[in-house]
């Protein structure tokens, strides 16, 4: 408790924000019912997608926003998570052995942890190499590794190559019917809440304090005797695991995985979500994911030239706010209060 670093970055707690979280959670929890009430059943699926992407964006934010590691390759871990689900499912259906063992499965309790572990493993190997660089070089080397993994899956004919893999049925859970859209939404919601709670623990811990120290001045951290490389690697791996988790959920949601999940534009989209929502804020990336996806889907329904509206909107957002949506919110609140 007496750790000054920890005190410095501890979030300001007040009753109002606790109430707001509670309200948000209630709304999210009854969203399927609300969707029924407003006769918008497709909302549930859209909300599921947003929640999954929010997990991925928040995971990237842990590295990017809190530790200053601008990774342009997170789609790789996201895609690997998805492919773990796809490959395990395909072996389960065909009965073919994987690595000579009957490892195929469609049990979510197995596939999700495996997806997290495998993405974490890959993130550890490539992160260990990438972290030998920093700054723009780090951005580009993460991109390079992600592109290599992308081309690997494109060439992987045994698992569909460029066409991807169909997961005809969602992974199952004991006692719960995951095929129901609302049920799957709740599963994702619970996982997302757990993941965000974990992220909050991480960033408000002593570990998190070191991370933000690294972001501000790596040299200073090294000077007080902290091995920054190890911290950065750990955070990169956790971040990759989160992306893998999101990928595994997306494979279940879309019931389809393809190399598109690993393409650099997907990495870019995660970055956009983080920046749009506000890097280095806990819930910013979730808001960024929600706004980006909602704008995309609503504008596309409104006009086929939706990009000509979305593009300038993004530009204006950056020019007139600082820190994306979080900045916009601060601006608005400042205007109201002052």
């Amino acid at each position: 408790m007496d750790d000054p670093l920890k005190r410095a970055i501890a979030p300001r707690k007040n009753v109002r924000s606790v109430l707001l979280v509670a309200l948000a959670l209630v709304v999210l929890a009854v969203l399927p019912q609300l969707a029924d009430m407003f006769e918008q059943p497709a909302m549930v699926s859209l909300a599921t997608r947003i929640i999954i992407l929010a997990i991925a964006a928040a995971s990237l934010n842990l590295a990017l926003g809190y530790c200053g590691l601008v990774s342009f390759g997170h789609a790789a871990w996201y895609g690997i998570g998805g492919y773990v689900v796809g490959i395990l499912y395909n072996h389960y259906v065909s009965g073919d052995p994987l690595f000579g063992l009957p490892l195929g499965t469609d049990q979510m309790l197995i596939t999700l942890p495996v997806a997290i572990l495998v993405s974490g493993l890959f993130a550890a190997v490539f992160g260990a190499l990438s972290l030998r660089t920093s700054g723009v070089q780090f951005i580009m080397i993460t991109l390079a590794f992600a592109q290599m993994i992308f081309f690997f899956f494109v060439a992987l004919k045994a698992y569909g190559g460029d066409d991807g893999l169909i997961v005809r049925r969602r992974n199952s859970l004991p006692l719960i019917d995951t095929r129901d859209g609302a049920t799957f939404y709740w599963i994702c919601l619970v996982i997302a809440i757990t993941w965000f709670a974990l992220l909050r623990r991480i960033v408000s811990s002593r570990f998190g304090a070191v991370l933000s120290g690294v972001r501000q001045s790596e040299r200073r951290m090294a000077a007080i005797g902290i091995s920054t490389y190890r911290y950065k690697l750990v955070v990169f791996v956790i971040s990759g695991m989160g992306a893998g988790l999101a990928g595994a959920l997306m494979a279940n949601h879309a019931r389809f995985v393809s190399p598109d999940m690993l393409h650099w534009t997907q990495s870019g989209e995660f970055m956009i979500m983080v920046i749009l929502g506000g890097a280095g804020t806990l819930l910013g990336p979730a808001a960024g994911a929600a706004v980006l996806i909602l704008l995309e889907s609503q504008l596309a329904a409104f006009t086929e030239h939706w990009q000509v509206i979305l593009g300038p909107l993004l530009v204006l957002m950056i020019l007139f706010t600082r820190g994306g949506l979080s900045g916009l919110w601060k601006l608005l609140r400042g205007g109201l209060n002052g």
């Binding site: 924000s17 707001l20 979280v21 309200l23 948000a24 709304v27 999210l28 929502g277 506000g278 804020t281 806990l282 819930l283 910013g284 979730a286 808001a287 929600a290 706004v291 909602l294 949506l325 979080s326 919110w329 601060k330 609140r333």
Partner: peptide, 9 residues
């Protein structure tokens, strides 16, 4: 403030 974002969304 970050919390309100998710609600407004």
């Amino acid at each position: 403030m970050k919390l309100k974002n998710s609600i407004s969304a």
